[in-house]
Write a protein that binds this DNA or RNA. Structure first.
Lengths: 188, 188, 188, 188
DNA sequence: ACTTAAGCGAGACGGTACGTCCCGTCTTAAG
DNA sequence: CTTAAGACGGGACGTACCGTCTCGCTTAAGT
């Protein structure tokens, strides 16, 4: 059994307050106007409490992201049995989310975090909800004959995410039908 | 004739010194360790001279980028006559450039700038050298029958750029043959 | 005849504009919030025009002072024949002027100028209107027997000025009758 | 009992370092070449530490003055029993101090501070060492018959201080015997 | 129960950089 | 040769946060 060291245990309420405040301020002001000092003040927490448990601002945001506190939408791809349809639906939802003006800044901030924080970068796909899809559905679809053997699904998904990011960075709304067109091309 | 307003003209030497220093420090230390104060000191220029002509750090970097001072490689796609080959060559060069460890950070910094600065975001493709390709070769290739009419080449190129960005953010080197495979899929 | 050197003559209108603006801003904002740049802008004059003709801010203010543009009151002592009465009247006017809240700051600013600028310091008494009194009336009064021979009138006047300065610096209004009392003591 | 608020206590060593440095730089360079930045650097202290505890440069100097760090001489008037003698001695010391060329600038700087900072102005007399004299010796001397009842000693002292200030501002050394002459006149 | 170690809110501290103001000098075009 | 305009290198301003530290208090395990 794990030896609990002496002293007061970590305060869960402080942890929650910090993460909630971080998520709120991130959405409100963007990553680069986020300050540890501001979070501490707003969360009613001492700065030291933040520094004790998180190494950096980006790690703090990463934890928010991985706990699903940053992206308000449900980005898990559906499972209709038809993987092309599912991907299209998911990609389309992603396009529509990022094209909403109030979300563009949030996603761009997220891109900054991914660029600054390695673990956020590495888990970009998980953050956008396609991990299960990759690990569980690929085999099934291949076995069912939906996809030819050797389909680089990971590569396909990354490319779709890339398309979304480019639209976000270019501040250009996705063309109608773009989701379907892209999926059709990548999974012929 | 243009009326030159009175007073001393803008110092071109100061402008050059600032841009060169910015590019050097950007490559050396990354965007977020870049400071106006540091640039001014290193360039032998007063801070006010920077603030007089550039609104923000990102605008400064943007100007460097658009003047070709940031990306050392020659990213202009070749013109062999075969647009698929040309795209593959260009994309492969891009992959190889970003996969080099000393360049990954630079490109991630560039992504941050694109996220912070609208004009950099909007001109992502130009920055990566594919503007001409889009504006001049698309028509020619279509006329020659290389591409079916209605090929959304802009969309294709954006998707390729997106694939590069995702690899950069995920810190994953591109798989061998990825460039060729992607181009083949997107321009069947 | 004086050799006029070639080229444009000094612009009298610029000189006037500068001095008027200086006096206005000095009274309005105090000496330490006075800036050459602000004067130039407000006077519609180039900074260089100021620097060409005045060595420093304090010299500029000095010129205002010596031209009587700073102190709005008429501080010249009267000449009733009775030197004690005249001094009392003058000192009383000085006390009343400096005790007015809107003038206190102005006089304190003037003290600062006197402390910074040697020529203003040296001509403190002239600025406060007692030069003639010292140079012309002393002899007359002595001859008339109003003052005993050897009366150190310069010393007396300086002491009176000193009393005023101390009240100004202490932000204490002068006691009623202080002028008369002081003059009586110093010129028994 | 005094409620000590939480958080680290104010650092006394930082406070001392700041005041000592301020006094040193003030004496060395004068009030207007004194900069917060320079003090902070020289004292090995962060600028914010200064701004946290002092509102302005003049307040900083004021604290130095009230702690006796600015004026190196012992300006306390003696107590020989004869108040006229004591005043003369004190005034003479003051004249001699201010007439020394290395001290003139210091005292003129002090005048500037008195003009800028209300509390320094109000406590001019205390700063120059005559507070006790006023509060304790006046009554005693009056009782002993040394001074006629109703002697406005405060006014007398202010006038003496004023005489000193005028000499300082005029850059004129005091005439020999001036101290004795003035005291004799003011306290006949 | 007492000690001891850790967590916590608060906040002072040495620093770095910010963006602004103003300095005094220099450059340009007009008169 | 003066002037208005204004760019320039420089220095200081006062502010915002950084990440570390110290304080007095609370909490909980070990003795």
């Amino acid at each position: 059994m794990a030896e609990r060291r002496r002293g007061a245990a970590r305060s869960e309420s402080a942890r929650i307050a910090v993460l909630e405040t971080t998520a709120a301020l991130f959405a409100e002001r963007g990553y680069d106007h986020l300050t540890i000092e501001g979070i501490a003040a707003e969360a009613g927490v001492a700065k030291q409490t933040i520094y004790r448990w998180w190494k950096s601002k980006s790690e703090l945001v990463a934890e928010c992201l991985f706990e699903g506190r940053l992206l308000p939408v449900d980005l898990v791809p559906p499972d209709s049995g038809d993987i092309r349809n599912d991907l299209t639906t998911w990609l389309d939802a992603l396009f529509r989310f990022t094209d909403a003006p109030e979300n563009g800044g949030l996603v761009r901030s997220l891109v900054i975090v991914a660029a600054e924080n390695e673990s956020v970068g590495r888990q970009l796909d998980a953050s956008l909800g396609v991990s299960t899809l990759l690990t569980t559905r690929l085999g099934a679809a291949t076995k069912a004959g939906d996809l030819p053997a050797g389909t680089p699904l990971k590569e396909v998904v990354d490319t779709l995410i890339g398309a979304v990011l480019v639209h976000v960075l270019q501040r250009t709304p996705a063309a109608p039908g773009a989701a379907k067109r892209l999926v059709s091309l990548l999974l012929p």
